[in-house]
Design a protein around this nucleic acid. Structure first.
Lengths: 217, 217
DNA sequence: GGATCAAATATCCTATAGGATCGCGGGACG
DNA sequence: CGTCCCGCGATCCTATAGGATATTTGATCC
């Protein structure tokens, strides 16, 4: 563990700097489409709007850039990443299919019962937005349940793009997705790794097919 | 395609800003161990050393932080990430084994012959450092040959950690690794996806075993 | 020699300012 | 009417400065 990042149990957690708060704000705005895809992001406007200087804005945007959520062009400034097109959607789901079924298998073996109990299939979601947030949480928890930070991190990075893509289309809650989530949860509860992997693969494949329909080639 | 990032054939590429140049410098220093793992990185010292103001330093460090190469603690500043320990090495190779064999299979189907011809097994490397650079290039090219930017990007992110880890130990050139690279290349040349996947899996597993020996539990 | 404390120094973080660049609108010209 | 040019305002990018915080150093005491 790095000497800079240790927060053992009894130490007092440090407050965040402004840059980190700006990062969180912008990330949330991107996810919720308050900052839509392919939109100019002005450093000066943001500084005025958030009531801070340009410095933390630029730092936050630098981090968002490294995460692929915004892009930067020298002397022209920043813009949010555009909505995924077909090739990117294909690439993303290829990637998910490599990782998430494996993560579900690992989670079936490693997750503690209290964490499994926190999984929510989204059955009680009252709106598309609520379902999208539950879906994000569902996949995040299982990725974390795989006990591999790289898996959790890489899925987190890409899931935000799924979230944004889906939000652009304001689809109805996918009753199928709720059903598929349920199958994954049942396999996890049964500690059946093979079944969890299979259920997650099926869910990802079906999710891919549903999202693909939004893009007309 | 985002309006900000288009560089169609006849447009003039933009120069980089200072922040990007600082990012490249620091990244190279981290990779070469000129900036060792778990080392404080002072914004003011760097600004003096590189002859620029603090602003591009902070922006570059923000990007490096988002990439996991440095960490930041509020009011205490930045430090390079520590050398991987056993759990992180395990996580990293689990991840590689999910991705790289698949990438090799894809590359066997998709890579053009001229790119395959550029693959270098490292047989002619004259030193450990030269071999490490060739190894990085080898894996990078195959990941790119898989034609999925997410795969290429995620492997690029993690490979730098392998590179740093290996550099810490200054091991001899692994003649075995050269041989394994050769098997991967042969399968790619033969356009045999299954063989490429198998050869890459074998290489990653053996590489893992070799690196694991450096960490005494 | 080790522990403690206070002062000095270095560094972190952010705000502000200024020069460079870009984009837009209006006017001139053919 | 369409095109070109120029000026102006907005924005980008970086340097600088100053207050806040952390680290180091030196003195004192046991």
């Amino acid at each position: 563990m790095s000497a800079l990042n240790d927060i053992p149990d009894r130490q007092i957690a440090r407050p965040s700097g402004l840059a980190e708060e700006v990062y969180r704000r912008l990330r949330a705005d991107i996810m919720s489409l308050r900052l839509p895809p392919d939109t100019r992001v002005s450093v000066d406007s943001l500084a005025r709007e958030l009531g801070v200087s340009q410095t933390p804005i630029r730092e936050a945007l630098s981090m968002l850039e490294a995460n692929g959520l915004v892009s930067k062009k020298h002397f022209a400034g920043y813009a949010t990443a555009p909505r995924m097109e077909r090739a990117q959607l294909d690439a993303l789901f290829e990637f998910r299919l490599l990782i998430e079924p494996h993560a579900a298998r690992k989670a079936a073996e490693a997750m503690v019962g209290s964490d499994i109990a926190l999984l929510d299939s989204g059955a009680a979601a009252s709106s598309h937005d609520a379902f999208a947030d539950i879906d994000t949480d569902f996949h995040k928890r299982i990725a974390e349940g795989a006990q591999n930070p790289l898996i959790a991190d890489s899925l987190s990075r890409l899931h935000i793009h799924v979230h944004i893509f889906r939000s652009c289309f304001r689809s109805e809650i996918a009753a199928e997705a709720v059903h598929e989530h349920g199958a994954v949860i049942a396999a996890l509860q049964a500690r059946n790794g093979a079944a969890a992997e299979k259920a997650m693969r099926r869910h990802i494949e079906r999710s891919y097919a549903r999202l693909r329909d939004f893009i007309k080639d």
